[in-house]
């Protein structure tokens, strides 16, 4: 496994170079002009302002020259400066990414824990009311559009009932914790500030739950079907014949085998959750990488677009690698090569 991991890690720079190259040229191939967002509508006809902006942002260079400069800077850890925020893209990503990772981590936790429990319960109550309810809930979770659920939840629990906190990572007027990890829940605990942790946690619950819904529904259905399939396997009959109770067999053996495909699903979903967070982030005023990606695309902010693609690539590649390793660890029959 070590050789496999090292080989995959060694291949990563090549793959990331490919991602950066595609993102670089694709974003610049659109017919629109980033100068519109840089200089604004009023200054488009002002040649001095347009020329100064073109020079400042390196848009006066040929595309190959721009590409060469970008790659050279990238090798020194410089992802360029955002046209829009005027900050180094690396700083922007460093600020935005933890917010999205925190949200995605909790969404994943909710999906895996509730999904596995739901799937097991559905399998064990097959054909009964609980199974029916869980199957409908799973279907609804997978099919309802996230933006609609988000708006409805906000309207009901925040605007009408007043029991959910406001959109955002913290309540109004609350001072954020000192920045250590960028995860407000972790940083508040590191600062020993329990009330702040509570506030951050409360703000996480609703967006994380809604973000988890699609994956939660899939996990419930996957665990349920795998459990039912495994229940008919020979080893289950053998274990039962040896005197193990049904519950012991399910929890000890069936669940372990049934959960293996969930690991693969999680691996694929981590990247999708993080890079697809834009709707939730917009609805819940969550200043993460999803909204950054969209705003950058709308403004043709080339350095930011390429930076987001690079981060997305790293997340997907690392996610897939970790999935393969986890898969082999859980199921010894799998040999990585």
């Amino acid at each position: 496994m070590l050789r496999f991991t090292l080989r995959r890690l060694a291949l990563m720079p090549l793959l990331l170079w490919g991602i950066v190259t595609i993102a670089f040229f694709l974003s610049r191939s659109v017919s629109s002009n980033p100068l519109v967002t840089i200089v604004g509508e009023r200054n488009l006809g002002n040649p001095d302002v347009v020329a100064a902006a073109t020079r400042r942002w390196g848009l006066d260079k040929s595309l190959p020259e721009q590409y060469w400069v970008y790659l050279s800077n990238l090798l020194h850890g410089d992802l360029g400066t955002s046209f829009r925020t005027k900050s180094p893209v690396l700083d922007d990503l460093g600020t935005r990414l933890p917010a999205t990772l925190e949200l995605a981590f909790f969404a994943l936790l909710i999906a895996v824990v509730l999904g596995t429990v739901g799937g097991v319960v559905a399998a064990r109550t097959q054909g009964r009311a609980a199974d029916g309810v869980l199957r409908v809930a799973a279907l609804a979770g997978s099919s309802l559009p996230v933006f609609w659920v988000g708006l409805v939840f906000l309207f009901v629990f925040y605007a009408t009932l007043g029991i959910a906190p406001s959109p955002g990572r913290l309540s109004a007027r609350v001072i954020p914790p000192p920045d250590v990890t960028g995860f407000y829940t972790v940083d508040s605990l590191l600062a020993g500030d329990w009330p702040l942790f509570v506030d951050a946690f409360k703000h996480l619950v609703m967006p994380a739950f809604i973000m988890s819904l699609a994956l939660l529904g899939t996990v419930i259905r996957l665990v349920r079907s795998q459990m039912l399939e495994e229940q008919g396997a020979d080893y289950v009959r053998t274990a039962r014949a040896k005197g193990m109770s049904r519950g012991q067999v399910l929890n000890k053996h069936v669940l372990k085998n049934a959960i293996t495909p969930v690991v693969t699903l999680i691996g694929v979903s981590v990247g999708l959750l993080i890079m697809g967070a834009v709707l939730i982030e917009t609805i819940f005023s969550w200043n993460g990488i999803g909204t950054y990606a969209v705003e950058s695309s709308r403004g043709l902010d080339f350095p930011a677009i390429t930076g987001v693609c690079l981060v997305g690539g790293v997340i997907f590649l690392v996610g897939n690698l970790l999935t393969d390793i986890a898969y082999a660890t859980i199921d010894p029959r799998v040999r990585l090569s």
């Binding site: 309540s171 007027r173 609350v174 001072i175 329990w194 009330p195 702040l196 509570v198 506030d199 409360k202």
Partner: peptide, 21 residues
Amino acid sequence: VTALAACSSTGPATTDRTGII
């Protein structure tokens, strides 16, 4: 954790109420 978070009545440190949002 969930219960404590839900029931906690002590608020976090806030900026002065004389601030406007």
